[in-house]
Structure formats: structure tokens, C-alpha cells
Amino acid sequence: MARRVSHEGAECPVARAVDIIGDRWSLLLVRDAFDGITRFSDFQRSLGLARNILASRLKELVGASILEVVPAADGSAYHEYALTEKGRELFSIVVALRQWGEDHLFEDGEPHSVLLDAANERPLQRLEVIDASGRTVTSSDTFVRKVSH
């Protein structure tokens, strides 16, 4: 198997983020953590992932301070995984992927899960990228300024 190229020192924030959460299992683990899953066995049951791969991904997410290991809520000898503040800040990324998936990966009328606001049990509004003045912007309204040395 080829070694994964690291973008740890890249000038691009997207490349650095993809190094940590860019594989499918890591993002699905974060999604499951948002859905309240905390235990190794429950992550495994949800994803059907081999134990060694699951252990590796959880270790990477803990190492990146996206998840933290905490004592089990029930006081047992087990431990659980909880989102850190850094991990909770991935919420908008998960919502954006969900909304993109809803728009492009389901046929009309095909059933799928829906993310609801807990206060009123209604679907969330569409995410938008907003500039400093409150105007919605698209990719054609933006540009990347490269870092100069």
C-alpha cells in the first residue's frame, strides 16, 4: 500500500484540514459523535469498520484534539470518546456535506435522514457563505491570496 502524502506543512488550510478529517472514516466518526455515539463498540456497529482501522482513526482524531478520551458516563471501567471544542467546530462542515448530499445524491422522493432543529423539530436553513457586510457570496465572488515569502 502506498504511503499517504502529508500536507502538514502546506500553506493551504484546506490541505491541512484534509490531512486530519479528509478520509471517509474520520468524517463519519465525527458525524457519529455529533449523533451521540461515544463508545468504541457503538462506532464499530454504526460503521461496520474493522477494529484495527477504527482504533487507528480514533487515535488520530484524539491526537488531533478533535476527540478526547473521557471516563464512561455510567461510571464503568470503559472509556468514551467526546468531541472537543475543536471537534464541535466541525459541525458546519458536516451540515454542509449533508446538504450537498441531499441535493445531489438522492433521487426525488428517495428517503434519507434529515437533520432537525432540536427546539422546533424543523429542518435547518441552507448554509450560506456570507462576506463581512452580510452579502451571500459564491466561489466566483472570491479569490485566494497566496502567501508571499
Rank of each mutant, 00 (worst) to 15 (best):
A119W: 01
F106S: 04
E110A: 08
L105W: 06
F91T: 02
A132M: 14
E102Q: 14
A33E: 05
D74A: 09
V5D: 02
I66S: 07
S6D: 03
P13I: 09
R3M: 10
A119G: 06
V5T: 09
H7D: 05
H7V: 04
V14K: 11
V94H: 03
A72S: 15
E60D: 14
S133N: 13
V62E: 08
R135L: 12
S139A: 15
D141W: 05
R57P: 00
L61I: 00
H104S: 12
L28Q: 13
S56I: 03
G101C: 09
P123K: 00
F34C: 05
G22R: 01
W100Y: 14
R57V: 08
E8H: 05
M1Q: 03
R31E: 15
D19P: 02
E102K: 10
L97C: 12
Q44N: 05
L29Y: 05
G101W: 02
L124A: 06
K86E: 15
S46K: 11
A55L: 06
R57Y: 00
A10R: 09
I20N: 05
Q125M: 12
C12K: 06
L124Q: 02
R39T: 12
R122I: 09
R39C: 08
E102P: 01
E80S: 09
R57A: 10
G63K: 07
S92P: 04
K146A: 11
S140Q: 10
D131W: 01
I66M: 03
D35Q: 13
F43P: 05
